[in-house]
């Protein structure tokens, strides 16, 4: 039973990170109908930024909590700047092009960013400082759920609630929803659609960067390639839940994380991806629009 609970929490942790990244995919898709394949790289850049900042700050001897918060903030801001710039350079000029063009542009951006970080940071795995200490009061259950897991779960929960409030209750959120539903009409009621799109990239990138920092301190090492795998997994999660749907991305992330965790625990870690992607195929067979996605009926 303990083993089951342990796997459950490990899956939850993993899933919450997938969900954080998947939110970025799904928000961008919801607004401009683009699969932003460079999103995984944003996550990777977030991890690297927090790595650099955390290393510098720990040399300066700041307390751990300050390091975590500052590194997280720096990662979120820096990755948002990347997300914003990528949209302006690679997607905005192709706004009215056929759908395939921005997709290719996204893949190009992804390859470019990987190689850029490869050149800047070498291909070696860099040891990521252990930012999250072990709390003593958790000692009795540490074999089931570690401190890192708890911090990751709490941070993702807070981020998701903040996102929910942003989208549901603020005018920026309303503008985003309006833009997602009908861009032309949104413009006609005075919404600056370009700014809404920029904001979407900024918010999505910040979430991915936070995910990058959390997972890096959990796993303990990073390199230029981590964004690719994480990106593919998060994309899978977004599709699983119904791409374009925000609750769908969260649900998809958790389902994917749990599936992988149980597959690793009860079968073999070699099969973790097999199970994850088989699940995707199965769900898409029965619900092509994903679990919470709306099947769109094209009116002719």
């Amino acid at each position: 039973m303990d083993y089951f609970v342990e796997l459950f929490f490990s899956g939850l942790t993993r899933g919450s990170i997938y969900a954080l990244i998947a939110l970025g995919y799904t928000m961008v898709y919801g607004i401009i109908g683009l699969i932003n394949f460079a999103h995984g790289e944003i996550y990777m850049i977030g991890a690297f930024t927090s790595f650099v900042v955390a290393s510098v700050l720990s040399i300066m001897g700041l307390p751990l909590l300050a390091i975590i918060v500052l590194a997280g903030l720096a990662a979120a801001i820096w990755a948002s700047a990347y997300g914003y710039t990528i949209e302006k350079i690679a997607y905005k000029p192709l706004r009215n092009a056929p759908r395939l063009s921005p997709l290719i542009s996204a893949i190009g951006m992804s390859i470019f960013l990987q190689n850029y970080v490869l050149l800047a940071q070498t291909s070696n795995f860099l040891p990521f400082p252990e930012l999250i200490p072990d709390f003593e009061f958790l000692e009795p259950i540490a074999h089931i759920i570690g401190t890192t897991d708890i911090v990751i779960l709490l941070t993702t929960a807070v981020s998701m609630i903040a996102l929910l409030i942003l989208i549901k209750f603020t005018r920026m959120g309303k503008a985003m929803r309006a833009t997602a539903q009908d861009k032309t009409m949104a413009r006609l009621v005075g919404i600056n659609v370009d700014r809404v799109i920029s904001n979407t990239f900024i918010v999505g990138s910040a979430l991915a960067a936070i995910g990058g920092m959390l997972i890096a301190s959990h796993v303990g090492q990073i390199n230029f390639y981590i964004g690719f795998i994480a990106g593919i997994k998060a994309f899978t999660a977004a599709v699983l839940g119904g791409i374009g749907s925000i609750p769908g991305a969260v649900l998809g992330g958790f389902i994917l994380g749990l599936t992988e965790s149980f597959a690793t625990g009860y079968v073999s870690s070699d099969y973790e991806d097999v199970f994850a992607f088989s699940l995707l195929v199965l769900i898409l067979l029965f619900k092509p629009a994903g679990l919470l996605g709306k099947s769109s009926i094209e009116k002719v």
């Binding site: 920026m172 309303k174 929803r177 309006a178 900024i202």
Partner: peptide, 24 residues
């Protein structure tokens, strides 16, 4: 061309936003 998945009030509020200023 209404924003179908928003409430009646939200639809009108959206129109109103362009007359006010607010930042992120």
């Amino acid at each position: 061309r209404l924003f179908q998945n928003m409430t009646v009030l939200e639809n009108v509020m959206i129109g109103r936003h362009c007359r006010t200023s607010s930042f992120i």
